Simulated scan of single mutants.
Amino acid sequence: MKIGETAMPEPEGGAARYGGSTRSVLIVASDLATHPDSAVGEIAARTGLSQSQVSTTVARLKEAGAVITAPDPADRRRLLVRQAPHLSGRVAEVRATTIDDALGDSTSEQLEEVTDVLDVLARHLSPRTPARPRP
């Protein structure tokens, strides 16, 4: 998470324009990858973030074009949040960013080793991989 936070490029207009922390953006985006069509309260319950943090983060992600919202057909007062069907410019920018600068003064061998380990972790800890309870 720390590497992702450090590597995340600043949004155009600066982070203050959007509100919400980079960490909350990463947490909410990850949750939505596994639980599309979730209400803010449901995201808050799963992630441990406050409802106001989730609301601010969803607004930030919506402005960046990363998520869309729609009224809940069962309860029109609630909004359901899901990942946007198309890649926005901001999402493409974030996905194209490498972690090289975030890893600092690492040698190319160290960068390759860390990247390889992170690739293995990504395969095993993907948001789409069901969580296994710890013994």
Rank of each mutant, 00 (worst) to 15 (best):
T6V: 09
T6R: 11
A7R: 05
A7T: 00
M8K: 08
M8L: 14
P9R: 15
E10N: 14
E10G: 07
E10R: 12
P11F: 04
P11H: 04
P11R: 05
E12G: 05
G13E: 07
G14R: 02
A15T: 05
A15Y: 02
R17T: 15
R17H: 11
Y18S: 08
Y18G: 07
G19I: 07
G20M: 04
S21T: 15
T22Q: 03
T22F: 00
R23G: 01
S24P: 06
L26P: 04
L26D: 04
L26H: 09
L26Y: 07
I27K: 03
V28G: 02
A29P: 01
A29H: 11
S30Q: 08
S30N: 15
D31K: 00
L32R: 00
L32D: 01
A33S: 10
T34K: 15
H35P: 00
H35F: 11
P36D: 14
P36C: 08
D37M: 12
D37W: 13
S38A: 15
A39L: 06
V40L: 03
V40A: 11
V40Q: 08
G41C: 05
G41M: 03
E42C: 12
I43M: 03
I43A: 02
A44G: 05
A45M: 03
R46W: 14
R46S: 07
T47K: 00
G48T: 12
G48R: 06
L49A: 06
L49S: 01
S50E: 06
S50I: 15
Q51V: 13
S52M: 14
V54G: 04
S55Y: 02
S55W: 01
S55A: 13
T56H: 01
T56G: 02
T57E: 05
V58N: 06
A59L: 02
A59C: 03
A59S: 14
A59K: 13
A59I: 05
R60G: 00
L61Q: 04
L61K: 04
K62H: 13
K62Y: 08
K62E: 13
E63N: 13
E63S: 08
E63I: 03
G65C: 03
G65P: 06
A66G: 05
A66E: 13
V67G: 02
I68C: 09
T69M: 06
A70L: 12
P71F: 01
P71S: 11
D72C: 10
D72T: 05
P73T: 06
P73Q: 10
P73K: 14
P73C: 08
A74V: 09
A74K: 11
D75A: 11
D75T: 06
R76L: 12
R76E: 13
R77Y: 07
R77C: 12
R77F: 12
R77L: 11
R78E: 11
R78H: 15
L79M: 13
L79C: 04
L80E: 00
V81L: 07
R82G: 02
R82L: 01
R82K: 13
Q83D: 12
Q83P: 02
Q83N: 07
A84D: 11
A84M: 01
P85L: 08
L87S: 14
S88F: 05
R90G: 04
R90P: 02
A92G: 05
V94E: 10
V94W: 12
A96R: 14
A96Q: 06
A96M: 09
T98I: 03
T98Q: 06
T98N: 04
T98W: 03
I99Q: 07
D100L: 08
